[in-house]
Design a protein around this nucleic acid. Structure first.
Lengths: 131, 131
DNA sequence: TATGTGTACTATTTTATATAGTACACTCAT
DNA sequence: ATGAGTGTACTATATAAAATAGTACACATA
């Protein structure tokens, strides 16, 4: 699978599914139009309840990541400009602040932290080239 | 208070407390040795159960953020080098990857994202100077 | 027509949170 | 010494979210 689910995690299973698919799509591991496993099929693979898969798929559709075609299945949606840009930008800023807090306790200095960020960002865009 | 608690949030109250204190300490709003409100006092202020406050304080002590002195109260601990550096570094990297995913759906280009990061980091360290 | 799709139900169980109330050992000012 | 204020431990209960189980329906397609 393009991600792994840990039933013992404190993070809800359906949330792990949602985040896993979002990340796989963002990384280009799942491509536009690609078919996802059916609810029952995926449930059997990961040995969790089909209802939980369905819940995750519904959340993903609500976010515009995937599309469901009645009787056909679920597919990776085209990468259209998202709504709620404001909200998402706030989310990014919020995550950055949490990183700052963690970095404080790690006693990372400004230079080191920036270097880590640059490396991560550059790595990301390099790996996405040609996808 | 140095943070606010939203009882209707999906984030557990005790977790909001933990994160709030951690951030306040990191920002220098709470200084080393400063006394935190007693469990009962804070519970009265925020109108939540004292047990919930206690749970948050115990988590914070476990993380080495605060110290409790028997019969005296809880205080902001000295900022000693933390254990689990490996784990925390992984946590930071993990948070950075989540940011990359969000940035993908926001269609932020590499340059813009790096600029936002630099701004956030510089702002942070500037505001912490002289604390 | 038969199979596979997502979806919608209801019911039940499990787990994490939060509340309520009581009690104990400790510290410190009086 | 005494009493008020500290964190902590304990049991019990309530609430909400999450996950499971099972069934059923409308749709698409080979």
């Amino acid at each position: 699978m393009w991600f792994d689910v840990d039933p013992r995690s404190s993070v809800a299973i359906y949330r792990q599914l949602v985040d896993g698919v979002k990340e796989a799509v963002a990384r280009g591991i799942l491509e536009t139009g690609e078919k996802l496993p059916s609810v029952r099929e995926l449930a059997a693979q990961v040995t969790i309840n089909p209802n939980t898969i369905a819940k995750a798929y519904q959340e993903l559709e609500r976010e515009g990541i995937i599309e469901t075609l009645r009787g056909r299945g679920t597919f990776v949606a085209a990468h259209k400009p998202q709504k709620n840009l404001e909200e998402k930008e706030k989310a990014i800023k919020s995550m950055l602040e949490k990183i700052m807090v963690e970095a404080y306790y790690l006693q990372l200095d400004e230079k080191t932290l920036l270097a880590l960020m640059e490396k991560t960002v550059q790595n990301w865009y390099r790996n996405r080239e040609g996808v």
